[in-house]
Simulated scan of single mutants.
Amino acid sequence: MDLNDRIDLVARSWTPSQQSHPGNVAWHGSGCDGAPAPDAVLDGNGWFAEVWHAGEETEVEGHFSPGLSRDERRLAVGRIFAQAPRGSIGLVTGTPMADTFREAGAHERGGPFFLLQHRGLGRLPRVPLAPGYSIVTAEEAGEAARVEAHRRAWAPARIKELLGLTITGNEPGSNFTLDAFRALKGVVAYRPELDLVVLAPDGGPVVSLGVV
């Protein structure tokens, strides 16, 4: 199952009770988050999982369609346990897949580790654009400006500042690169008309808005 197949699967089967959505699968699969390539990728009818080994501990992330039967869930869990007998996997609690992992001997480590939020698009507030600022497509802004807008907005030091954390001055830069952006543009879910950049009065990039 290649990246576009995984994106298509998530797009067809996503519900608000699942952590992965098409956008973050496209982002991660294109290398935009800077994560290392998985050591193994498992997949089956209606699911896939990526596996990273780190000594005796293993990290697993995946997507499991809500329509999987109990037998299909058990098969997926069996294959994951065979590849990763010790480790962790991110799941939304209270879902059939989480229950199947518990039945197989998994237990919760506490948490929460991930806050899933969503909202309807029917009553979004109108936010006026500040004088002198403009919104253009990434194509109009140029690839370099699009990448720089993201790197500025998501710089680790800036995120720490927003969270009220101590800034040491040794924070790395953003993992987002021009090569990663070009890979992202090649996925089936990428919609250039929705990939927008806010430009400051001097024409410099400020922030990017939406990709897929």
Rank of each mutant, 00 (worst) to 15 (best):
R70V: 11
D71E: 14
D71F: 10
D71M: 09
E72C: 06
R73W: 02
R73F: 02
L75R: 15
A76L: 02
A76Q: 02
V77W: 04
V77A: 04
G78F: 01
G78A: 03
I80V: 12
F81H: 13
A82K: 11
A82F: 07
Q83C: 14
Q83Y: 08
P85S: 06
P85T: 05
P85L: 06
R86I: 08
R86T: 11
G87C: 02
G87L: 03
G87H: 04
G87S: 03
G90C: 09
L91E: 02
V92N: 09
G94I: 05
T95W: 00
T95S: 01
P96T: 02
P96N: 01
P96W: 00
P96K: 00
P96E: 01
A98I: 01
D99V: 06
D99W: 06
D99A: 13
D99M: 07
F101W: 09
F101I: 04
R102G: 09
E103I: 08
A104Y: 06
G105S: 05
G105V: 08
A106W: 07
H107D: 08
E108R: 12
R109N: 11
R109T: 14
G110A: 03
G111W: 08
P112V: 08
F114S: 13
Q117V: 15
Q117M: 15
H118V: 04
R119D: 09
R119A: 13
G120A: 10
L121Q: 07
G122M: 10
G122Q: 13
R123Q: 11
P125D: 04
R126W: 13
R126Y: 12
V127Q: 07
P128C: 05
P128G: 05
P128F: 07
L129C: 08
G132Q: 07
Y133R: 14
Y133T: 13
Y133M: 12
S134E: 14
I135E: 02
V136R: 10
V136K: 07
A138H: 11
A138G: 15
E139D: 14
E140D: 14
A141H: 07
G142W: 05
G142M: 04
E143D: 15
E143R: 13
A144Q: 11
A145I: 01
E148D: 09
E148R: 15
A149P: 03
H150S: 10
R151D: 00
A153S: 11
A153L: 08
P156Y: 00
A157Y: 00
A157E: 06
I159P: 00
K160P: 00
K160L: 09
E161G: 12
L162S: 08
L162C: 05
L162R: 13
L163T: 05
G164L: 04
G164Y: 01
L165W: 10
T166E: 14
G169V: 05
N170Q: 14
P172C: 05
